[in-house]
């Protein structure tokens, strides 16, 4: 039975697939897929190095602090970090007092709700609070940045490229795709998936942020620092993960060598 019906079923699927293949091939020749602006002008992230790259990489805390400063002074007006608590900033090297002060002075306050009176109000942030969500009137909620560096391929480089990638729409693009002109209120950026995004270049000029550690606050430097910071917010445990990894791999290597020798011993008389 199986030997009879098996080949029949096989033929059925095979013919159906040939049918799809033939039709697909025919339409691919007669009406080839039209090229799109996204397809031709979208760029992969720039090649940029971070201290945390690679299996030995570690976050540069000084850089993370600068990145946090850029986030606080530039990004935080619109973008929240709801998975990061103020207390987490202690891992960037801030003291308990500094963390408290950062929380207290944070621009977006914690919403409160009094169940008795039904009143909604605000209070200052405290260290155990998560960085509050920003509601941006008229535009909805801009994306939360906690995980942005993991939510994009090659996320750190992506953020850096996006921040430094704003430019005039190339004439070549307009010539080839006249319908793809960047709409009003959007900005052209080849590192963004559909080339036009609603956010104007946030880091526009040197010294937009005053660094206190003597680093020169160029647009490139600030973009890099905030990208590094967002890599940390996405994966705060990366340093500990790699450290644990080396200990585990070292142990496993020794154990595996021993297991190999033991296996050879056991099998010594059977080969």
């Amino acid at each position: 039975m199986v030997r009879l019906f098996g080949p029949l079923v096989g033929l059925f699927f095979a013919v159906a697939l040939l049918w799809s293949f033939g039709n697909g091939a025919y339409s691919a020749i007669t009406e080839p897929a039209a090229p799109t602006a996204e397809h031709e002008f979208h760029l992969h992230p720039k090649d940029v190095k971070f201290a945390s790259d690679g299996v030995f990489g570690k976050y540069d805390k000084q850089q993370l602090q600068r990145g946090f400063q850029v986030y606080k002074e530039v990004c935080a007006t619109c973008h929240s970090l709801k998975h990061v608590a103020f207390r987490d900033l202690a891992n960037l090297g801030y003291s308990e007092g500094e963390v408290k002060a950062i929380a207290k002075q944070w621009g977006t306050k914690q919403p409160t709700f009094d169940e008795k009176s039904g009143e909604r109000a605000e209070r200052d942030n405290i260290a155990s609070d998560y960085i509050p969500t920003v509601y941006y009137a008229g535009q909805g909620v801009p994306p939360d940045l906690s995980l942005i560096a993991k939510a994009r391929h090659n996320g750190g480089a992506y953020v850096y490229s996006l921040l430094t990638g704003y430019q005039e729409q190339p004439a070549e693009l307009l010539k080839k795709f006249p319908d793809s002109k960047t709409p009003d209120g959007l900005y052209y950026n080849p590192y963004f998936a559909n080339l036009n995004l609603a956010m104007p270049a946030p880091i526009a000029s040197d010294d937009q942020v005053a660094y206190s550690d003597g680093t020169k606050a160029t647009v490139d430097q600030m973009s890099k620092d905030v990208s590094a910071f967002l890599m940390w917010t996405a994966e705060p445990k990366a340093d500990k993960r790699k450290q644990t990894g080396w200990a585990v791999l070292g142990f496993l290597l020794a154990a595996t060598v021993l297991a190999y020798l033991a296996k050879k011993n056991v099998w010594a008389d059977k080969h």
Binding site: V55, K150, R241, K242, T244, G245, W246, V248, L249, L252, L253, A255, T256, A259, Y260, A262, K263, N265, V266, W267, K270
Partner: peptide
């Protein structure tokens, strides 16, 4: 002990690869 020993070694190799991914390229 023949195949427990052999599987023990196999497990070691497996864990090495698995942990390398877990700790260094988890995503």
């Amino acid at each position: 002990p023949y195949y427990t020993a052999k599987d023990g070694f196999g497990l070691g190799v497996f864990l090495l690869i698995y942990c390398a991914i877990l700790f260094f390229a988890p995503n």
